[in-house]
C-alpha cells in the first residue's frame, strides 16, 4: 500500500508543478485534461482500484478523492488568475526586500592604515613593528631626548615600572630596526601609542601613529619633501599642497612640521583650518647624528630622514570626523558608515 500512496504523492507533486507553471489558459486546460479529465491520470488510477486488496481499497480511494479535490481547487484558482487581467509579473512582488546577510565593515582607522601602508609600499617602504611596551632607552635615550625632558614625566607618559613604559610614539621601532640591520633602511612603523592625555574631541590616551624612516648614503631634505608630498597627493588627491615649517625635535636636525592645504575648504580658509588654509599634520626632519651614534651607525657615512603622522588625524580629515573618541568607542552606528 505504501507504494501506491507514494505514487499518489509523486503524481500530486507533478500535477501541482504543471498547474503552477502553466503560462496561459490553453496550457492549463491541457494540464487539467491530462490529470483530471475522463482519460486523465487520476481516472486511470481510479479504474485500477479494483485490483487492490479489499482492505486497502477504501483508504486509497479516500486519498484519491482528496487529491482530486485539491488539484481541482488549485486548477480553478489558476484559471482565475490566468483569466483575470493580472499577469504573473503583476502578482510577483519584487519590491519585497532581498534576503540579506549582515554587511561587514572595516574600521575607518584600519582602512586608513591600509591605505597609508599601500602608498608607502609603492615608494619602497616596508612595514616594521615593535612592542607597545618598551624601554626608556628605546623611547628617549636613543632619541637624543634630554634626561629632564618633560616627555619623560609621569604626567606625560604611562609607565609600567621605572625604565619601562607605554611608548608615546613609534620611534622605538626605528631604533629597534636600526639596531637590527645595517643601512639602507626604508621603513614605516604604524602602531598604537600612549600619552597621558585626558580624552576630549582631539585627544585620546591611546592613539595611532605611523612613522617613517629612510637611511642611506645621500638621503637629503629634498628626498624628505618628495616622500611627504607624494604621500599627500596619493592620500588626498593631486591638488593638495604641502608646506614645511622649521620646528624643533631632539631627534632630528633640521626639524620640520609639515602642513597640508585644507582639503575641506581647498585652502581658502574655514572653521576646520581656523581660516589659515593649512592643517598641521605632524613632524619630520633629518635624523640627528646623535641618534645614529646611539644605534651604531656612522653619521659621516649615512644621512636619513624620519617623519611621523597621526593616523587618527588623517582618518578624521579623510572622513570629516569631528571627534577622535568616535574612532575608539566602536559604536556600530558610526562604523556602519565606512
Amino acid at each position: 500500500m505504501s507504494e501506491i500512496l507514494a505514487f499518489l504523492k509523486t503524481i500530486e507533486d507533478e500535477a501541482k508543478t504543471a498547474i503552477e507553471n502553466a503560462s496561459d489558459k490553453a496550457v492549463l486546460d491541457s494540464v487539467i485534461y491530462s490529470y483530471l479529465g475522463r482519460k486523465g491520470k487520476l481516472a486511470e488510477i481510479s479504474r485500477g482500484l479494483g485490483k487492490l486488496d479489499p482492505q486497502s481499497r477504501p483508504q486509497v480511494g479516500a486519498r484519491l478523492n482528496e487529491l482530486k479535490k485539491r488539484l481541482t481547487d488549485l486548477a480553478e484558482k489558476k484559471t482565475g488568475i490566468l483569466t483575470s487581467t493580472l499577469t504573473s509579473a503583476d502578482t510577483f512582488d519584487y519590491t519585497l526586500p532581498g534576503k540579506r546577510a549582515f554587511v561587514g565593515r572595516r574600521h575607518p582607522l584600519m582602512q586608513t592604515v591600509d591605505r597609508i601602508v599601500n602608498i608607502f609600499r609603492g615608494m619602497g617602504f616596508s612595514v616594521a613593528t615593535g612592542p607597545d611596551i618598551d624601554t626608556e632607552f628605546n623611547n628617549f635615550d636613543a632619541l637624543n631626548t634630554p634626561e629632564d625632558h618633560p616627555a619623560r614625566d609621569l604626567s606625560d607618559t604611562f609607565y609600567i615600572r621605572k625604565g619601562i613604559l607605554l611608548r608615546p610614539h613609534t620611534s622605538t621601532v626605528q631604533i629597534r630596526t636600526m639596531q637590527a640591520q645595517k643601512p639602507p633602511v626604508r621603513i614605516i612603523s604604524p602602531g598604537r601609542c600612549y600619552r597621558s592625555d585626558t580624552p576630549d574631541a582631539s585627544h585620546s590616551p591611546v592613539f595611532y601613529q605611523c612613522e617613517g624612516l629612510f637611511v642611506d648614503e645621500h638621503v637629503t631634505f629634498g628626498d624628505l619633501k618628495g616622500v611627504i608630498i607624494q604621500f599627500a597627493k596619493d592620500m588626498f588627491g593631486p591638488r593638495i599642497k604641502v608646506r614645511f615649517r622649521p620646528h624643533f625635535f631632539p631627534f632630528t636636525e633640521p626639524s620640520a612640521e609639515y602642513d597640508f592645504s585644507c582639503m575641506i575648504c581647498g585652502g581658502n580658509g574655514c572653521r576646520v583650518c581656523k581660516n589659515s588654509g593649512w592643517l598641521e599634520i605632524s613632524g619630520a626632519g633629518m635624523v640627528d647624528p646623535e641618534v645614529f651614534r646611539a644605534v651604531g651607525y656612522d653619521p659621516d657615512r649615512v644621512t636619513g630622514f624620519a617623519f611621523g603622522m597621526g593616523v587618527d588625524r588623517i582618518t578624521m580629515l579623510r572622513y570629516r570626523i569631528g571627534d577622535i573618541r568616535l574612532l575608539y568607542e566602536n559604536d556600530v552606528r558610526f562604523l556602519r558608515q565606512f
Partner: peptide, 12 residues
C-alpha cells in the same frame, strides 16, 4: 565579507 564589523578598541 562574512558580515563582521571590525572594531579597534583601547588596549587600556
Amino acid at each position: 565579507g562574512a558580515g563582521g564589523t571590525e572594531i579597534f578598541s583601547l588596549t587600556l
